[in-house]
Design a protein around this nucleic acid. Structure first.
Lengths: 244, 244
DNA sequence: GTGATACATATCATCCTACAACTTATTTCG
DNA sequence: CGAAATAAGTTGTAGGATGATATGTATCAC
């Protein structure tokens, strides 16, 4: 808990601020792919920080594949396709439209993954999923514990696909949505009343136990559309609505 | 081109090596969430590098949300759910099983996204997609240019969904697969003979023009399964095979 | 004049030292 | 015994020095 709060309200360290500034400049197109960044010394003077700070910032951008530094020449902006990491701007999560986009992405990922999980889940997987389901228990309101259990439920299903990348991606997207909801609740306390729907989860679990991919996919899709609705996001998934 | 080669054969910088080492230690579970990392001084002695190098490595892990550093105390490993970035280990891409997993993830993402794109694409989107299609042109073999055009084709479709996150995720996964195939071709030259199937692309494009989500999804799914087969990966997608 | 070599310059990579800011444990003193 | 002062340990930042690498410039032999 202490860890989570610290992670959300992270102190703005100097290298982080410099990295964010440069990153925004690249994203916004002020620095096009191929362009050369100012030298480390110029940057350190411009921001009024030491060269060490600038180097740590550049090291981060380089690790993400946003820039490439070449000894003796300089640092250059790389094309977006060459990114080595997906990083989502926390600030952007405060925008409701982005929360909607995340829910849409989540629906795409989890619906079909649920079908995979139904086909591949082992006994051990089912036990883990059941344990998470029980932890949600009688709690009808979204307390922190219930949210944790809910996310664990989804992660365990993703794990049951046997595909580690699917697990990673779904975990990541779910966590971004958690943050997005967290921000939304701060600005609009009404969201505190949002309920957690146990029935939807049970239907997903039953489909997994039965090993019925189509049912699992439908149940998962219905659940995510429902979850989105409960936080005020109406998913405009043409396929989801039409295919049911 | 020069950029891409440089990006692939990136020189192993010291901070990168330290970061990779620590990252592996965390992934493997030798350093559990909550555990404290050795001090910067201890690490610099252990690796025989300066504290500066250690700091750059830690800055990267911190930016990824893998660890949290607290002034005056130390650095601590965070839970996997708190990751702020998705980063895929390039080494792991050399494993064919991982290429298979990536194709599976790609299929999930792109199939349904194609349906969304069919419902939402604008005239301008169609033009961009058509341009990429034309660039693939008569080339029947996978030259670098054709691969670029192919990836652009897929990226433009993802963009036509209007969901920037979907675009980001699909671009990223496709790029990882490109690297994976690149490695596979180095160890097994036979893969040089892999062909690009223009017909599959045309069918996708036609469905997008027609604004037919179901057809677009089916065509995209068939295409990705086909593309996987052509590089020697048989996709075990239960749903994909059954639903057609 | 031309070409090759040597030199100077610019930049990133790494190292080193020092100090500030923060946390924790210990000691000291009322 | 309790509270404040002190000391020690750790990360954050600053600044300079040196090595490695790429590029441009000048010099010199022919």
């Amino acid at each position: 808990m202490k860890q989570r709060l610290a992670a959300i309200g992270t102190v703005e360290t100097l290298p982080h601020r410099v990295a964010t500034f440069l990153s925004r400049e690249i994203e916004s197109g002020e620095l096009n792919p191929g362009a050369r960044l100012p030298t480390e010394q110029e940057l350190s003077e411009k921001f009024g920080v030491s060269r060490n700070v600038v180097r740590e910032a550049i090291a981060q951008l380089r690790a993400d594949g946003m820039i490439e530094a070449r000894q003796g020449i300089g640092a250059f902006v790389l094309a977006p396709e060459q990114r080595a990491a997906i990083r989502i701007d926390r600030e952007a999560l405060k925008d409701t439209h982005n929360m909607e986009r995340l829910f849409e992405l989540r629906c795409i990922l989890e619906a079909e993954s649920a079908a995979l999980a139904a086909a591949r889940r082992s006994k051990e997987h089912l036990d883990s999923i059941k344990a998470a389901l029980d932890r949600m228990g009688g709690e009808e309101r979204w307390e922190e514990g219930s949210i944790d259990a809910d996310l664990l439920f989804h992660r365990e299903i993703a794990r049951a696909t046997g595909n580690s990348y699917i697990h990673t991606f779904i975990s990541f997207v779910c966590e971004q949505i958690r943050h997005s909801i967290h921000y939304a609740r701060m600005t609009n306390p009404l969201h505190d009343l949002v309920e957690i729907n146990v029935g939807e989860h049970v239907r997903i679990y039953d489909a997994l136990v039965a090993g019925d991919p189509a049912a699992a996919e439908a149940a998962m899709r219905a659940h995510i559309v429902g979850a989105a609705n409960r936080v005020g996001v109406r998913l405009p998934l043409s396929k989801a609505n039409g295919a049911k």
